[in-house]
Design a protein around this nucleic acid. Structure first.
Length: 470
DNA sequence: CTATGGCACGGATT
DNA sequence: AATCCGTGCCATAG
């Protein structure tokens, strides 16, 4: 089976997913990428499976993303899958998909292509004639999401100043996915950096790295990069890590891999987020729209024809076919199970961690997987699997590992960052003092731990800190 | 002597 | 059972 390198540590049962053994959960631990591979493999070798492309609401005929609620007739009727999009209300009661409002806000990767998705976002900010130009420009997007048009030529064609065209491309670049319509990867990266500037360890150095140091970065020659930037190797690594973790030179091609565990390998892997959380637009009720990424362009199901055929199967094949069929429906069941679990998980997570999602790292609530587990009434290992390897796109377009929702020290680390940012620049605080200040804010941690957090955030020790401008 | 990084231990989490 | 995390102790750098 085409399930090769997984970066789990000790997965015992792997390759032979032969029917019955992998009862359910085996899919839960997979992220969308891995899942995709798995499904495609199954699809290729199991004739009982069928991928139905395009999906229409049985009620109103509107074409839908698989598993989505139909926003028009406001129901999931006829859908044999759990909805993959739901709305987390601002209070703590859930309404599993009140249809309203999520119709037009959700980019539908299946029925809408990138150009129109982008166009729709920026349309409100454009004059009619500009809109036309934007539309033209967007048709030249290549598959990486970069613009191949010649701006000069475009300007001449439309008989407007180049600056007008440029300002339009600028607008495009800031639409989601951030960086689309850049003229080259560098520009895309810079745009993304701009948006994430306050998250970056040192946005100026990041910018310079992007402009001048990409060669070093891709070769992972951090020493030389450090030299180029005139900074320490540590900072260089930090910057490199930030860039590879958060920025993506090819905006259309999903997002840049993201396992920021220092010891990460698998560097340049692209990865769509497994979950996407947006703020519900329009009625700004502060509601969050959560979408579970679905890797396929269609609905997976057991091929009804195959089922028919089985009845009059030629004796020698009958046995095999039967197995295929069972396997197929098992896979589908597991898939549904996986989605169900993830959705339930996210429903709670979205509510509990709403502050974090909306307002940033500082507001994360310490949360353990096990506490969530018994709230959901599932085994904790289920949660673990559901969380592991997944990534979430937050409303600010940042992609973080889902495990960060359970980061016990994140809030302290951000508090730490705040203190360091605000406090005197000429007279950096030592770890001991930092520890005391943190204690005042209610975070009682040891001095030694302060040092650890500092490292995690890529902040230099006190005596080296006054050197850099930041 | 003070400020930090390294190693490693014990308890909590997964 | 395997890992992760906060800490204490000690060595080293300034």
């Amino acid at each position: 089976m085409a399930l090769q390198q997984g970066y789990y540590q000790s997965q015992s049962q792997r390759p032979q997913a032969t029917a019955h053994l992998a009862q359910t959960m085996s899919l839960l631990g997979l992220n969308s990428q891995e899942l995709n591979q798995e499904i495609e493999a199954a699809l290729a070798e199991n004739p009982a499976l069928e991928l139905v492309e395009g999906r229409h609401c049985p009620g109103c005929g509107r074409s839908l993303r698989p598993g989505a609620y139909c926003p028009t007739c406001n129901s999931a009727s006829g859908l044999d899958e759990e909805p993959l999009v739901f709305v987390a209300p601002s209070d703590s009661s859930y309404s599993a998909g009140s249809g309203q409002g999520l119709s037009e806000e959700i980019p539908n990767a299946d029925t809408e292509d990138l150009p129109s998705y982008v166009l729709r976002q920026i349309a409100p900010d454009l004059e009619p004639n500009e809109l036309e130009i934007a539309a033209r420009l967007l048709t030249s997007l290549n598959e990486d999401g970069l613009l191949t048009a010649d701006l000069q030529a475009e300007a001449r064609y439309s008989m407007v100043p180049v600056t007008t065209v440029e300002s339009i491309t600028d607008l495009i670049r800031h639409a989601d996915p951030i960086g689309v319509g850049a003229l080259n990867p560098t520009q895309a990266l810079l745009t993304q950096l701009e948006v994430l500037a306050d998250e970056a360890p040192d946005s100026e150095l990041c910018a310079r790295t992007i402009q001048e140091g990409m060669a070093f970065l891709s070769k992972r020659h951090y020493g030389e990069l450090a030299q180029l930037l005139g900074t320490s190797k540590k900072v260089a690594e930090e910057i490199a890590d930030f860039i590879t973790s958060n920025l993506n030179p090819y905006p259309a091609r999903a997002y840049w891999g993201n396992q920021r565990t220092a010891t990460n390998e698998a560097p340049a892997t692209y990865q769509r987020p497994d979950l996407i959380i947006r703020e519900q637009q329009g009625t700004d009720s502060g509601r969050l729209v959560v979408e579970v990424t679905w890797p396929l362009r269609g609905l997976l199901r057991v091929n009804p024809l195959f089922q028919e055929a089985l009845k009059e199967a030629p004796g020698d094949k009958a046995e095999q076919w039967k197995i295929d069929l069972e396997q197929a429906s098992l896979l589908i069941k597991c898939l549904a199970q996986r989605n169900h679990t993830i959705v339930r998980l996210m429903q709670i997570l979205a509510v509990v961690q709403r502050d974090y999602i909306m307002a940033g790292n500082a507001h994360i609530k310490p949360l353990t997987r096990s506490s969530l587990a018994d709230e959901l009434g599932v085994h904790e290992s289920t949660i673990s699997r559901a969380v592991s390897g997944k990534s979430v796109q937050l409303p600010n377009n940042k992609i973080v590992p889902l495990s960060q929702f359970f980061d016990r020290s994140l809030h302290i680390r951000t508090a730490l960052k705040e203190i360091i940012k605000d406090e005197p620049e000429q007279k950096p605080l030592s770890d001991t003092k930092l520890a005391k200040l943190l204690a005042k804010e209610g975070y009682k941690i040891a001095r030694r731990t302060v040092a650890k957090y500092r490292n995690m955030e890529g902040i230099l020790p006190a005596h080296l800190r006054k050197a850099t401008a930041n």
